[in-house]
Nucleic acid binder design. Structure first.
Length: 114
DNA sequence: GCTCTGACGCCTA
DNA sequence: CTAGGCGCCAGAG
């Protein structure tokens, strides 16, 4: 394992590897990290990542593709706006064509050397 | 050192 | 089908 200590950093790395125009879910990341049942931790980790511009937390949504964490962003629709600029359609905190923009680290990502 | 909360997810009633 | 509760792990008080 490359990363190591912090569950946080692992989440950051995965999120940072999410290509623009795509989104992933807390559960997907959690499962990729080996903590499928700890999706909450992923969201929590993002809490610390939100202050890092290297981590596009806006591309991380819940299982339904809903922008649950938008409230944590600077404004009220900052998250939604960012996603729309990437080409992702968002309607009332809900990502349109979520299935199409969904990026699963378990399938797209194979290893996390760094 | 113990307790509660927290950007979720899945199971059971 | 919908609604509610429990589980998980870790940080902060």
């Amino acid at each position: 394992m490359a990363t190591d200590h912090n569950f946080f950093e692992r989440v950051y790395l995965v999120v940072k590897q999410v290509p623009a125009g795509r989104v992933t879910t807390y559960g997907a990341i959690a499962r990729y990290l080996g903590a499928a049942k700890s999706a909450r931790m992923v969201g929590w980790a993002l809490n610390g990542s939100k202050r890092l511009e290297n981590v596009p937390a806006q591309r991380v949504v819940n299982r339904m593709g809903m922008l649950t964490g938008k409230h944590h962003f600077s404004g009220t629709s900052a998250m939604q706006q960012l996603l729309e600029e990437e080409g992702i359609k968002v309607k009332d905190n809900l990502i349109q064509d979520f299935k199409k923009v969904f990026w699963d680290p378990n399938e797209e990502l194979e290893n996390m050397d760094e």
